[in-house]
Design a protein around this nucleic acid. Structure first.
Length: 327
DNA sequence: AATCCTGTCAACCGCCGACAG
DNA sequence: GCTGTCGGCGGTTGACAGGAT
């Protein structure tokens, strides 16, 4: 936190210089009143018209990160933590996009939380699990289930079914396809709901149901560590759509590249692959879940522009998220 | 009680893309 | 096409609080 200050050397120019640093309660009142009465316009106009000696950017930041009425206060819930970790594994440091999936949370808040809490936790756990210290760098994305976040033993057990195959030292593309098909085979048919979230477990059998505050059962796809990947909604016409998410990439470009190679320490990415394939299929035609699967694992597969907006738009539909505590 | 250390978080900075003139 | 402005974003800073020593 910074002490309130006035930019510029000469305070006699206070009327013409912009203030910096912490916001005073009076400034907050001015901005709040202006925003509530006049709504958002050009931020530089907001600053001017509200009688603030602040730059537009500063006003915007203050409003977004602090004054906005819909902000959720308080500590992150374990569910939110898990969601942040998962979204970060998908999106990287795209805090704004992560924040967009967490109602009432700001990108700044999430960024701070990640840098101060989660990152540290993951690092500690990572170092604890590599006693010889051979892992010079840690990858939070590999440590999701070691970070003390809630996981589902059920899903771990279910995933264990696939581990022998996944742990194959040099699985062939056909092996990938086999595993993938096996998973897709276990996908429940998603054509029996109308306008409501439906059971859409990643695996069959013992997938747990989650109940939202509204009492509607939800279910998501699960990640390797029990994290919910996304829920599935069935439209009135029975078409399945996967809630979208903004463009995402785990690579430097915006194409999601799925490596065909698989080794024992790439289970995480492997399941991302699976999820992406499933979701990709689901977002196209539910009746053609299997279509194209055989062609997915080539030397290197580029899935093209993969708009996560098409995958996880409505993260609020995640079954375990309970936003009823928003104050 | 004083000092040090660490975590938290509000806010700034610099960059980028979109857009208008 | 160039330039300026603006909004948005991610990285970073630094003040403060609270725990540890």
């Amino acid at each position: 936190m910074r002490k309130p200050e006035v930019s510029g050397k000469n305070n006699s120019n206070i009327n013409y210089k912009l203030r910096k640093g912490l916001w005073s309660p009076e400034e907050d009142d001015k901005l709040m009143n202006y925003m509530l009465n006049s709504g958002q316009g050009c931020w530089s106009d907001v600053a001017r018209n509200a009688g603030l000696q602040r730059c537009g950017k500063s006003c915007r930041l203050r409003w977004i990160n602090y004054l906005r009425p819909d902000l959720k206060r308080g500590a992150f819930s374990p569910q939110e933590e898990e969601l942040i970790v998962h979204l970060h594994s998908l999106l990287g440091n795209r805090w704004s996009q992560i924040a967009a999936r967490l109602p009432g949370r700001t990108d700044n808040e999430i960024k701070n939380f990640w840098n101060s809490t989660i990152k540290k936790r993951l690092k500690n756990l990572s170092s604890n699990t590599s006693p010889n210290g051979s892992e010079s760098s840690y990858d939070p994305n590999k440590d999701l289930n070691m970070a003390g976040f809630t996981t589902s033993n059920t899903h771990q057990d279910q995933l264990a079914d696939f581990m022998p195959m996944l742990n194959s030292s040099s699985p062939s593309p056909s092996m990938h396809a086999t595993v993938l098909n096996s998973i897709i085979d276990r996908l429940p048919l998603l054509d029996h709901g109308q306008n409501m979230p439906v059971s859409g477990g990643f695996f069959n059998g013992t997938e747990p149901y989650f109940s939202s505050q509204s009492g509607v059962d939800h279910k998501g796809f699960y990640l390797e560590n029990g994290g919910v990947f996304g829920s599935v909604n069935i439209g009135a016409e029975g078409d399945m759509y996967v809630p979208p998410l903004e463009s995402v990439s785990t690579t430097s470009d915006h194409n999601l590249k799925v490596e065909s190679t698989c080794n024992t320490d790439t289970n995480n990415s492997y399941f991302d692959d699976i999820n992406s394939v499933i979701l990709n299929n689901c977002s196209n035609k539910r009746t053609e879940n299997r279509a194209g699967v055989e062609n997915l694992f080539q030397e290197e597969l580029t899935m093209g522009e993969w708009d996560l907006e098409e995958l996880m738009k409505d993260v609020s539909s995640f079954p375990f998220l309970d936003f009823s505590n928003i104050q």
